[in-house]
Design a protein around this nucleic acid. Structure first.
Length: 468
DNA sequence: ACAATGGTCC
DNA sequence: ACTCGGACCATTGTA
């Protein structure tokens, strides 16, 4: 277990138990950061330092179970990293050429409209062109001047076509720079595959992060995004892709943790939860249009984040007052959720931390701060962490069980990626049936809450085809 | 090198 | 009044 290096210790201090003296560890970390060979740090060293610096004598058994899980998970992650994922470089390059061509075209179109050449990639220069030269009214301000981000340009685009073309140009450039050039650069020449690195220490909720490259933010839309995603595929024809994702896992966990009757019943009756919320929010409408459902979906989504009416209003394009009404209506519909949130905040006040279903902790000192803004921020963090963190715990436990299963009978199929609520597999043709059955049963069976977790499974010849 | 801005994902 | 749940990365521009 030589991979259980210093990352593990850092994880303990940062996401599991922040109540530690960090100084004993600084030397260790310095060596880690300057070291070429990460493997030289053993679990024994890390664990020793951890014990040395603990301020309590005993460790909460629930916390210990998380520590044990993380220890074992590291080996699973290392296997996934080493396995990597194949990318059709030729296809990716060819898509890149299409994008470049279209991008060049947009570029010229912009110069033509403006009557001047400038660097469209520079926010500053775009500001100058739009607001100084073309005298377009400002829609949104930022620290250093006038914003030209997506939100601002979309507004401007209602009247000035130039903003829409800049948006289109940006989208193309984003795809080209980050996902074409960026990915081509990190294909391993020996394996022809991309090997990401999972960071177990990167988040404060217990989620994994993925870096060098980040394979957790590959675009998922249609058009070029789908084309890029389709470049992720099996290396040989004996394999296909399988994507298994938890369906509405946050809301299901919220239902279990809060025990809310209405939310629980809705799930037990297999109702469409977004439509149900929409019916309640827009009770005066007899027909729920897709637009109304979209708003209700945003409300459901952002209530989990502990967001304010102001924030929600930006997402659903309404006034803050209207958005606040929606949030209040949500709480009226699911009163136990509000009570549950209150109990989470009370716990944060009392203990200084909040915890997941499995006992993973996040220390939140801000809930005791005298500054109202800081406190409000801390409260949103506190409300979100048990849900997002439990989700992270659930999929991590599932991954470990899946890894055991794959290993036990020496299957040829492999687990390749984790994207927070989704796992990507490379499935050998001969193992298709058993894999579908087992992956579903392991993932759905891991969480013992009142509400059963649901897993959607899609298969296909590549990542794009296999997505939901 | 580093901050600011912007954009992609769950 | 309000820039807000959790991440990583590219580009520009300044130090």
């Amino acid at each position: 277990m030589s991979f259980l290096d210093i990352r593990y210790y850092k994880h303990l201090t940062s996401t599991i138990d922040r109540n530690l003296d960090f100084s004993a560890f600084m030397d260790f970390e310095h060596h880690y950061q300057t070291s070429v060979n990460k493997e030289q740090y053993s679990i024994e060293k890390a664990y020793f330092s951890y014990q040395e610096s603990r301020t309590e004598d005993t460790i909460d058994p629930k916390l210990q179970s998380i520590i044990d899980m993380e220890s074992k998970l590291l080996g699973v992650l290392v296997n996934m990293e080493r396995t990597g994922i194949y990318v059709d470089a030729e296809k990716l390059r060819s898509i890149g050429e299409d994008i470049t061509q279209e991008s060049k075209h947009k570029e010229l179109e912009i110069y033509d409209l403006v009557g001047e050449r400038f660097n469209i990639n520079s926010a500053k220069q775009v500001q100058n062109i739009l607001f100084e030269k073309l005298k377009i009214p400002v829609s949104k301000k930022i620290k250093t001047g006038y914003s030209v981000d997506n939100e601002a340009l979309s507004l401007i685009g209602q009247k000035y076509e130039i903003a829409n073309i800049i948006l289109q140009y940006r989208t193309l450039e984003k795809l080209r720079s980050t996902y074409i050039d960026g990915l081509l650069k990190v294909i391993n020449p020996e394996t022809k595959r991309i090997h990401t690195t999972y960071n177990q220490l990167g988040t404060s909720t217990g989620r994994l992060s993925s870096e060098a490259p980040n394979l957790q933010n590959i675009p998922s839309g249609s058009g070029y995004s789908a084309q890029i995603k389709s470049c992720f595929c099996p290396q040989s024809s004996e394999f296909s892709f399988l994507v298994a994702d938890y369906s509405q896992i946050e809301l299901r966990i919220l239902a279990s943790l809060s025990g809310d009757k209405a939310l629980t019943e809705a799930f037990l009756r297999w109702e469409d939860i977004h439509t149900r919320t929409a019916h309640f929010l827009f009770w005066e409408h007899t027909v729920i249009t897709s637009e109304l459902r979209r708003i209700a979906k945003s409300v459901n989504f952002w209530v989990i984040y502990g967001i304010t009416g102001f924030g929600l209003s930006k997402v659903i394009n309404s006034s803050p007052a209207e958005a606040t009404q929606y949030i209040d209506a949500f709480y009226a519909m699911y009163p136990w959720v509000r009570a549950y949130y209150q109990s989470v905040l009370d716990g944060a006040q009392k203990n200084g931390y909040v915890e997941t279903f499995y006992g993973r902790r996040r220390y939140i000192p801000g809930v005791r701060d005298s500054n109202k803004m800081i406190r409000a921020w801390a409260e949103r963090e506190a409300i979100n962490m048990p849900i997002q963190g439990t989700e992270a715990d659930v999929i991590k436990f599932a991954m470990m069980e899946l890894a055991d299963f794959f290993k036990k009978d020496s299957y040829k199929s492999r687990m390749l990626l984790q994207v927070h609520d989704e796992l990507v597999f490379e499935i050998h043709t001969s193992e298709k049936e058993i894999m579908e059955t087992k992956i579903r049963s392991i993932m759905e069976g891991i969480f013992p809450g009142n509400i059963k977790l649901l897993v959607d499974i899609h298969t296909g010849a590549n990542w794009s085809e296999a997505k939901g």
